[in-house]
Amino acid sequence: MITISRISKQFGKKAILQDVSLEIKKGEVFGLLGPNGAGKSTLLSILATISQPSTGSVTVKQLDLVKQKKQARQLIGYVPQDISLWEDMTVKENLVFWSKFTKGKVSNKKLFKICQTVHLEEKWTEKVSKLSGGMKRKLNIAVALIHDPDVLLMDEPTVGIDLQSKLEINQYIKKLSEKGKTIVYTTHDMSEILFLCDRIGVLKQGKIHFIGTINDAKDMMKEQTPLQTDEQVMYRLLNE
């Protein structure tokens, strides 16, 4: 589905990503993990076609993200870490506004249905400025789903919100993957990693240090420290 082949990214003389390669399968939730400054957001911005790699290539469904950017963008939905909404507009007005950037006209009926999928239908005519942080996060996700993308890129979509909203968003992401959506997800929340992710990739200082499942990581560490919990394995992956 997504093939990342030996990409690097530099800003001036600073290397942000170094020779990163990985494949992400259709329908899986792939957790992109690592400390702050590891290069996660930079990699997501490349996958979202917002920036280009300095070297290497990325394809989504065999479409090159640089050479076939316009076609590839139709396959990708991006949920940035920062809320990308107009505070003085209503929920409906935000969805209508962002729908104008998609290919073809999107009916209000379809936009309302998307609103229902994230449980915001009762806020349809309410201004975004009056929504809670969790509701704004849900609307941010709804905007990324307007054009029904095959791939959803999510950069810490639940940061700073209440536990109930986080659980609702996590359940919704699970349902999206079950429907065949391919999801790349970044988070610092251990419980989200263990609940959501089919596989994980750990970035450190711009380089991939691990790709696999939690069980793969356990097997890798078994000889050193047997009988580790999932949480202990994740802690070691991220901190050693």
Rank of each mutant, 00 (worst) to 15 (best):
V233C: 10
K100I: 03
M221T: 05
S51A: 14
K25F: 04
I169K: 12
M154Y: 01
K175Y: 03
T158I: 10
V60I: 15
S129M: 08
K40M: 01
P35K: 06
V128I: 06
T90I: 12
D148V: 08
R6F: 07
T186M: 07
Q74Y: 00
E178G: 01
P80F: 08
N170R: 15
Q68E: 14
L145D: 04
N239D: 04
I114Q: 13
Q171Y: 05
L47S: 08
V60F: 05
G133C: 02
T182N: 08
K110L: 12
Q52D: 15
I183T: 01
S8D: 07
V91Q: 04
E121A: 06
E240Q: 14
R137Q: 07
P226R: 05
G104L: 13
K110R: 14
Q164L: 10
F195Q: 09
K105M: 11
Q205G: 13
K103C: 13
K179P: 05
K136I: 01
T186G: 11
I24A: 03
V79A: 06
T225G: 08
D19P: 00
I183K: 05
L47C: 09
L43V: 01
H209P: 10
N215F: 04
S107C: 06
K110E: 15
I16R: 07
E240K: 02
S99F: 08
L95S: 06
W86F: 15
P35M: 03
K136G: 01
M135I: 01
K130M: 11
K69G: 10
Q81N: 06
I2F: 08
I141N: 07
D88G: 13
T49N: 04
K123P: 09
Q74L: 13
V118C: 07
D82N: 14
P35H: 00
T49K: 04
E126Q: 13
S99G: 09
G180A: 09
K9D: 14
K9N: 07
M190C: 14
K207T: 08
L237V: 12
D82T: 02
Q10L: 12
P53F: 14
G27L: 02
K207H: 12
Q74E: 14
V118G: 10
F11T: 00
L95Y: 03
L196S: 12
V202K: 06
E168T: 02
K166V: 10
G39D: 03
L153K: 01
T229L: 15
D230T: 08
G12M: 14
E156H: 02
T42F: 06
R137G: 04
H188I: 05
N140I: 07
V58H: 14
